[in-house]
């Protein structure tokens, strides 16, 4: 069956490091950065980009809508 590949783009200045996106990601893609953004928040990033399926769980639970999600079908 066609495999799906996903990716997220985090607006690092909008992200407030609340980590609410982490528990809803079934594939443990996201962690918080070591660096901080302009407001001093650690921000979300894809620690395991390969695992991302573009399911949008993280994006729709993010209170600040800091995450955009991309998904593409990949023929295996």
């Amino acid at each position: 069956m066609a495999k799906v590949k996903g990716a997220i783009v985090v607006d690092t200045e909008v992200c407030k490091g609340c980590e609410v996106c982490i528990p809803v990601c079934n594939d443990n893609v996201i962690l918080m950065s070591k660096e901080v953004n302009r407001k001093g928040y650690h921000y979300a990033y894809m620690e395991n980009p390969e695992a991302c399926t573009g399911c949008t769980n993280c994006a729709i639970v993010c209170p600040d809508r800091a995450i955009s999600v991309y998904r593409v079908k990949v023929s295996t």
Binding site: A59, R65, V69, V72
Partner: peptide, 17 residues
């Protein structure tokens, strides 16, 4: 599959309204 190939406008499935 490079990330940049995925992150394209046509592949976007979610963003802020």
């Amino acid at each position: 599959m490079e990330l940049l190939d995925i992150i394209k406008p046509e592949n976007q499935v979610f963003c802020k309204t």
